[in-house]
Design a protein around this nucleic acid. Structure first.
Lengths: 200, 200
DNA sequence: ATTTTTTTGTTCCAAATTTCACAATAATTG
DNA sequence: CAATTATTGTGAAATTTGGAACAAAAAAAT
């Protein structure tokens, strides 16, 4: 399977490439990208070579070509659909997050146990978790965000996997046990902040 | 300097330890913790040994003792103060995030360029960025959250560093250039989600 | 009291990741 | 058009990270 770290670097390269393009450049060298993203030039070249991205010796890499290929890697041309399970603080914030909307990422629906959340006050429709199967099947959803409290994390995860979800972004503070063909990215906001207090 | 990865693992161990304690246990073995957190028992023992945490051969580790020591590592006994720069979507969500409040993490103030945000409608006082110095000095703040748009990230970071901030949690999608005694943790919500679409 | 069992703490080993080094080659210069 | 220079692409070296293995020690069993 593909290296998860290098995948995430590609998304950084992409942001950097767009920046260079806005500045009027058409070509970049590996050390331009590396410097901007904070990795070595060799790392950039290795990443590119891993995905078959070609440059020209002495001429560097063509920005348009790189962006086009990266867009394909991440399916940026189609609509990319996601669901959110858990409409608490984090779930609600993600619904309103411009960063998703601006990048073809559509949050199709939210799910929650609390009926008080099934109102129209959110940017997206919110349903009972009973409806997960229906929504996933109807839209062929493959990607989900888990934003439920700790105790519910694993159970929700198991359900999602059984309904065909392949990629999970997990905000709940649990280590999820999943089959090996499922990819989980973890975001633990509290731990990211708290670890900084070690240095204070 | 200390290994950032093992620091974050300690916070996972902590959550797991609390879980075990709630279940009535007083001792754990490295493989209990490892299994729950998703690392090997050897990794747990290595981490503990790195921070001088002692167990007893055959008896395992004392949960209370581990928790007490981990609490010291992360200064959990005192109040831990933070400021947020950028009161957009993410900044606002973090203000209301229970996970911080429940863990002695106090968001002292928020800062934004937009005067429309200086109202009382947030859970914390929001000021002009001009006031950062005053607030940081008065409260001896050492930790900050950057939640501004891409273009402002580096500038805000430079300001913070010059005002004595030592740890930064960065939500802006830029690689921050900082002196080597400053620690930056990156959270890029969009990239974490987007990288999953590779697999769809 | 001795033996057996279990688990830690640590050294040694393996795998993965990153960096180095350099040949190959395309652009540029004279 | 030959010589020079700059940059890619990649195989080898180095580093980092995680895992296995085992001696030491404590508890339990006999």
């Amino acid at each position: 399977m593909v290296n998860q770290k290098s995948l995430k670097r590609f998304l950084q390269y992409r942001l950097s490439l767009i920046k260079f393009q806005r500045l009027g450049f058409e070509k970049v060298f590996s050390y331009n990208l590396g410097k901007d993203v904070g990795v070595t030039a060799e790392q950039v070249r290795k990443d590119f070579s891993m995905f078959g991205l070609k440059g020209s010796k002495r001429g560097g890499y063509d920005i348009k070509y790189l962006l086009k290929t990266i867009d394909e890697i991440f399916k940026r041309n189609g609509e990319r659909q996601v669901i959110i399970i858990g409409m608490g603080n984090i779930g609600q914030a993600l619904c309103n997050y411009q960063g998703f909307k601006e990048n073809n990422i559509i949050i199709v629906a939210g799910f929650d146990l609390d009926p008080a959340k099934y109102s129209k006050k959110y940017a997206i429709p919110v349903h009972s978790t009973d409806k997960m199967e229906e929504v996933i099947k109807k839209n062929s959803i493959r990607t989900a965000i888990i934003a439920v409290p700790e105790f519910a994390g694993q159970e929700v995860c198991d359900q999602l996997v059984s309904l065909g979800i392949k990629g999970i972004l997990n905000f709940s503070p649990v280590n999820l046990k999943v089959p090996e063909d499922i990819v989980v990215n973890y975001v633990n906001l509290r731990n990211e902040l708290e670890s900084l207090f070690y240095y204070t």
